[in-house]
Write a protein that binds this DNA or RNA. Structure first.
Lengths: 217, 217
DNA sequence: GGCGGATCAAAACAAATGTTTGAAACGCGT
DNA sequence: ACGCGTTTCAAACATTTGTTTTGATCCGCC
């Protein structure tokens, strides 16, 4: 009835709200951002959230949905560009992994990547009707396509393990992308041997880890 | 002053509180458990939490600390039992991985394992003074010892990557242990090909994944 | 110009939370 | 039996949260 009343995209207030939500959610997590912080940052009234979205949760879901949609679309396109011909299995696998990781850790996705990962983790730990719907609509269909591609380049992997390893791969990427401090920990772990690495370095290390895990058997 | 007044372990109310906290936190996450739920379950008064622990956060930290301590102690002992002699690198590595995973997914650790993982994830996403202290006190020192063991059985791994891969390994284990639904997803991913797996099966699949990721290069 | 719906803003609202209070109940040594 | 420190309890408290309400204002249109 009054939920999700008129969240057209071409609306100043709506887009200001979503922009502010993205930034704040990424920095603090949606749990720790009150509507008053959010609307104050967006420069709109507190009531605007409920007026346009119906509830805070609906706004959260809207942000989550947009990011998820974009990530899946990007990856679908990149996989299509990759084509069918498989020259070297290992490098093809690496390309596949890079495509998956890119929306999270790739260049230009600093904010949205972290946010997307946080949303995903929250869905895993505390699924709601909304996040479940988004997962079913976007992530699961894409997951099937992606797993099919994995199968092509990992023939030595037991069929069951394809699913398992896909799951573990996703898990690793999520938490590794969700928070920068999880990467700064590398400095204390190595006793300073590795100084806090650049974003690009982190992604390379993650790709190596995942390729190694998925190849071989 | 009045914080952490008298949380002796040999106290009926205190242990009742911690037991209820463990169960509820594991099921819903500490964020989603109110003091009234908690104390009602424990059969004590609401004020008992503040009386004995000083605050809800202090109680949370106490639970976290105990579990972390136990996990590290267990692993230290098992590593010592493993001894120095390395006959087969691969199986030694596998044993090491199993030792790490056990407090999270091993038999008998159903509740505490999930809880510990949830705490750890929360610390990563939203560190506090308390969780940082616990990490510094227990996890980081143990991490150094464990990484040293890893180095012995992964000589082909570039020294820098030892730290990275350790970090990724921990991440994978955490999120994979934190929620059972992350494992039930395997059923929808495989299109029903794999029915929801037993806890033991999951652990085996995770061990395969990690060993594969850590060996080779 | 004036009507009517869309949009906004300030305030009020209800519910939940962690925390504190003050008094009653208890345990126990003297 | 008394006194005293500790523990327990119900109630109140202060604060924050998301949400709703009530008008005021804007803008297009007959």
């Amino acid at each position: 009835m009054n939920v999700q009343r008129r969240n057209d995209m071409n609306n100043e207030t709506v887009s200001r709200l979503m922009k502010a939500a993205e930034e704040l959610f990424a920095e603090f997590g949606h749990e720790n951002v009150s509507l008053r912080q959010l609307t104050s940052r967006a420069g709109v009234n507190v009531a605007a959230v409920n007026y346009y979205f119906g509830s805070k949760e609906a706004l959260t879901d809207a942000v989550f949905e947009r990011l998820t949609q974009e990530a899946c679309a990007y990856r679908r396109q990149k996989i299509a560009e990759l084509g069918e011909e498989i020259e070297d299995r290992r490098s093809h696998l690496e390309a596949l992994v890079r495509i998956f990781v890119h929306p999270y850790l790739g260049e230009g996705n600093e904010v949205s990547g972290r946010l997307l990962a946080r949303f995903f983790l929250r869905h895993r730990l505390h699924p709601t009707e909304g996040t479940q719907r988004i997962t079913d609509t976007y992530n699961n269909p894409f997951a099937h396509e992606y797993i099919a591609e994995l199968k092509k380049v990992c023939p030595s992997l037991c069929p069951k393990d394809i699913f398992w390893h896909y799951q573990f791969m996703v898990n690793t990427i999520m938490i590794s992308s969700a928070e920068d401090t999880s990467f700064e920990r590398i400095e204390v772990l190595s006793g300073g041997e590795i100084s806090t690495a650049s974003r690009a370095e982190r992604m390379e290390a993650l790709v190596r880890f995942l390729v190694s895990a998925l190849s071989d058997g």
